[in-house]
């Protein structure tokens, strides 16, 4: 895909906001890769695709070229007719099975992204050069705006496939600095080195930012029927690596299993479920 955009120029004025052509290009390219994966799975007569993920390669940032590749393993239930549209999820086969048992089905990979332009205000650049501790509220607010935009997109997409919820959402955020010449904002004064009393419309240098925020997850739906969460047994894992439990992303060092006289919670986790 090829995306060409002029950063910061949002429809017809300078301001904070999603850089629409950029976001649209990424979303479309990614969806195309996923659709082709689905086509392949349907041709194979699969019921679904597990372990689905999309790789993105940027041969070189700024060249505007990106390559999206969707991978997954197509699976079928023996002796059952293939559905018109296979299900699709980012989770492993074991996790997919556990979900089915509990009455849920993965529907599709959910994805939402934004390249959000954040204009540096005069107040923000002033606070940046201060010697005291303070929040930069304009930047905090901008991150909130970007996130609301992305979450809104994710929800809209999940609703399209009639999902009950989104599991395993992962955030990726990075910030790009960008030096621009633009009219000063904030009423009075300018940006770096700007003086008072400059006429409105005078071009000045600013260091603005682009927030790249992406969220990826799997939309899941509820199956109709009397399902219930499988019974859970606490177990002690006798394998050697149980002595050296792999700490999850949330915990490290002392886990509950070390302090409570109970089963090892990590062993509830199926292999490869992280």
């Amino acid at each position: 895909m090829h995306a060409a955009f002029y950063p910061g120029w949002l429809t017809n004025s300078w301001g904070n906001g999603d850089i629409r052509p950029f976001t649209l290009a990424i979303t479309t390219a990614r969806q195309t890769a996923i659709d082709r994966l689905m086509e392949e799975a349907a041709i194979l007569g699969a019921h679904g695709v597990v372990n689905c993920h999309v790789d993105v390669r940027y041969p070189e940032w700024g060249s505007g070229l990106s390559e999206f590749t969707a991978f997954g393993t197509a699976v079928a239930f023996e002796g059952q007719p293939a559905p018109r549209r296979p299900f699709m999820g980012g989770m492993s086969a074991e996790d997919t099975l556990a979900l089915f048992r509990a009455g849920y089905i993965p529907l599709t990979l959910s994805f939402s992204t934004t390249a959000y332009y954040v204009m540096t205000t005069w107040q923000a650049s002033y606070s940046e050069s201060s010697w005291s501790n303070q929040e930069i509220p304009d930047f905090s607010r901008a991150v909130y705006e970007a996130r609301d935009f992305v979450v809104g997109g994710l929800r809209a997409q999940a609703r399209e496939v009639a999902a009950d919820g989104v599991l395993g959402a992962e955030w990726h955020m990075s910030v790009e600095e960008i030096d621009v010449e633009r009219p000063a904002t904030g009423g009075w004064g300018g940006g770096y080195g700007g003086g008072y009393g400059m006429g409105y419309g005078t071009m000045q240098s600013f260091r603005d930012h682009i927030v790249h925020l992406t969220v990826v997850g799997t939309a899941v739906g509820k199956l109709t029927g009397p399902y219930h969460t499988p019974a859970i047994h606490s177990v002690v894992n006798l394998a050697d690596h149980a002595l050296d439990p792999d700490p999850g992303p949330m915990t490290s060092g002392e886990t509950l299993a070390d302090t409570a006289p109970t089963g090892n919670p990590e062993s509830q986790r199926l292999p490869g479920s992280h």
Partner: peptide, 10 residues
């Protein structure tokens, strides 16, 4: 209601 979460399946 539509929920979002970063929980794994388990």
């Amino acid at each position: 209601r539509l929920w979002t979460s970063d929980l794994t399946v388990n």
